[in-house]
């Protein structure tokens, strides 16, 4: 059997009395695209935080390409090839979208070193510059590439996060509500970017979304969370037909 790209086993995280995650075991293969849905507070963001190491789970394990990663610090996991966007934006204030991408290219490429800086070899390389420009074009940020991120509207800021997560590209992309705050045109861009990624066999995408229309055009497989548990996992049609899902999430039959 092929080793999974990502495998969580019995992942549990409690905050006081709230069980944000309980016994979550998920498997994701390389190149797969999965949608994660669930009511607010179901534990979706907590799952991402545990996978990347922002939070330390109380129990359970996370493996990436067959090796345990749950003891690694965040940046090491990221360098293994996990990119992520944050639901609550974590942009580098004071920098422009282009600088966001350049610094990410550098960090991801691991080519930077202090001695190179001091010798004057630390400036962005032409390759890094052109890759950054390509990504900016891809997500439609070319016209604001050199404005400070604080001057961007909410939707544009979210696209900066998306572009930053795409640098690499990573083997695993974790997107936390990428479409919230986007307008119709930008959502269309998002869909085209993600479906292109979805066709690549080397990039797996996990996308948390509340926009069901969007997510069901993108993914074949849906995972549904409720109160920290996986209550359904399967094809989009099967999951959306599930009565438990409809009750918990869609508010139907309440």
């Amino acid at each position: 059997m092929v080793t999974a790209l990502l495998q969580t086993a019995g992942l549990t995280k409690r905050f006081g009395r709230v069980a944000a995650l309980s016994e979550v075991s998920l498997r994701l293969d390389a190149g797969e695209t999965v949608g994660v849905i669930g009511p607010n507070g179901a534990g979706k963001t907590t799952l991402f935080d545990c996978i990347l190491g922002v939070l330390q789970p109380d129990a359970g394990s996370v493996s990436f390409e067959g090796t345990r990663i749950d003891r690694l610090p965040v940046f090491r996991r990221s360098l293994l090839g996990i990119g992520r966007t944050f639901q609550r934006l974590e942009l580098f204030s004071g920098m422009t979208p282009r600088e966001h991408l350049l610094v990410t290219e550098r960090a991801r490429g691991r080519q930077g070193a202090l001695w190179k800086d001091v010798l004057g070899m630390g400036r962005p390389t032409p390759r890094e510059k052109s890759e950054a420009a390509d990504l900016l074009d891809l997500v439609g940020l070319a016209d604001v590439a050199d404005a400070p991120v604080e001057s961007l509207s909410l939707g544009k800021s979210r696209l900066v996060e998306l572009a930053r997560a795409l640098v690499g590209p990573p083997k695993l992309l974790l997107l936390d509500e990428p479409s919230s705050g986007l307008d119709d045109a930008e959502r269309a861009t998002l869909v085209s970017v993600l479906s292109r990624l979805g066709r690549r066999r080397d990039v797996a995408v996990v996308v948390v979304e509340h926009d069901l229309d969007l997510v069901s055009t993108l993914v074949e497989r849906l995972v549904v969370f409720d109160v920290g548990r996986v209550i359904a996992d399967g094809t989009v049609e099967a999951v959306l037909a599930d009565t438990a899902v409809r009750r918990a999430y869609l508010g139907v039959g309440r």
């Binding site: 009511p39 639901q87 919230s180 509340h210 869609l250 508010g251 309440r254």
Partner: peptide, 11 residues
């Protein structure tokens, strides 16, 4: 941004 980040049932 009324529906921002809210699950469909809550929206």
């Amino acid at each position: 941004e009324l529906s921002f980040g809210l699950a469909p049932a809550i929206v």
